[in-house]
C-alpha cells in the first residue's frame, strides 16, 4: 500500500516544482504473456474437453492512460501517470476479467535534446524508463454464476510492481496540442493472483502456480497538451 501513496506524493510534488509541463491522454493495446495463468486456463479447457466453448487465454487488452510530464533537466522529463488495462477471457458462459491499474513514475529522455537549451524539433523521439506500483483485481465468473470459493466471495487483489521501457515519438505541431506514439514493454516479476487455480479448476494440484513473470508488449497513442505558465 505504501508504494502507490509514495508515487502519488511524488507526482504532486513534481507538479508544483516544474515549469515546462504537459498532460497527455492515451489509448493503447497490449499483448500479455502470463504463462502460469494461461496454463491454468489451458488446463481448464483441456480437462473439460467436452465443452464446446473454450475459455480463451488472457492475451489482449485495451488500456487507457492519463499522464503528466514535467521537465527535470535539459531533455529530461519526469512523467507520473495512471494507466488502466483490462484483460478478458470470455465464453458465452464463463468470464475472467483482469483489471490492472498502474501508478507509474517514468523518466522520459529526449536524446536529441539532451543537454541542449532549446527545443528545435517538432518530431521528437524519446525513451521512457518507468517503474509502476500497480493493483491487480481479478474476477472469475463461471457458467453457474458462482464467483466464490467455498461460499466465500472471490475478490483477490494484489500489488505487483512493474518495470517499463518504451520508445516513443512526440509530434508537436503547435504550441499547445501534440501527439504521441509509444511502443512499450512491461515486465511484472512474480505477479500473483491469489487462488486463481482454485477459482477456476477447484484444485491447486492440476497445474503449477498462481504466480508468474508477466510480460506485456504494447502500442499506445494519444494527445498531449502543453501547459503554459
Amino acid at each position: 500500500m505504501m508504494r502507490p501513496i509514495f508515487l502519488v506524493c511524488l507526482f504532486l510534488l513534481h507538479m508544483g516544482l516544474n515549469a515546462q509541463k504537459y498532460t497527455d491522454v492515451g489509448v493503447g493495446f497490449s499483448r500479455l504473456n502470463a504463462s502460469a495463468w494461461n496454463e491454468t486456463i489451458r488446463t481448464y479447457n483441456d480437462s473439460r474437453f467436452w465443452q464446446e466453448n473454450k475459455l480463451p487465454e488472457l492475451k489482449n487488452a485495451f488500456n487507457y492512460r492519463i499522464g503528466y510530464s514535467g521537465v527535470a533537466g535539459k531533455g529530461l522529463f519526469l512523467s507520473p501517470s495512471v494507466q488502466y488495462s483490462k484483460f478478458t477471457s470470455q465464453t458465452p458462459a464463463d468470464k475472467i476479467n483482469l483489471h490492472w491499474v498502474e501508478l507509474e513514475l517514468a523518466c522520459d529522455i529526449f536524446p536529441l535534446e539532451f543537454g541542449m537549451d532549446s527545443v528545435h524539433y517538432r518530431l521528437r523521439p524519446f525513451l521512457r524508463l518507468g517503474y509502476a506500483g500497480s493493483m491487480l483485481l481479478t474476477r472469475v465468473t463461471l457458467a453457474d454464476g458462482a464467483a466464490g470459493i467455498d461460499g466465500e466471495p472471490y475478490v483477490p487483489y494484489n500489488w505487483p510492481y512493474i518495470f517499463h521501457a518504451a520508445l516513443g515519438l512526440r509530434y508537436q505541431p503547435g504550441s499547445v496540442l501534440g501527439f504521441f506514439l509509444l511502443f512499450d514493454a512491461r515486465f511484472a516479476p512474480n505477479a500473483k493472483i491469489n487462488d486463481f487455480r482454485t477459482a477456476l479448476l477447484g484444485s491447486t494440484y492440476l497445474n503449477s502456480s498462481d504466480q508468474n513473470n508477466v510480460r506485456m508488449l504494447g502500442i499506445q497513442s494519444g494527445i498531449t497538451f502543453r501547459i503554459k505558465n
Binding site: N33, N38, A185, R215, M216, L217
Partner: peptide, 10 residues
C-alpha cells in the same frame, strides 16, 4: 523480443 510472446504456441 521473442521471449515476450512465447506462450502463444504452447
Amino acid at each position: 523480443a521473442p521471449w515476450f510472446l512465447e506462450a502463444c504456441a504452447k
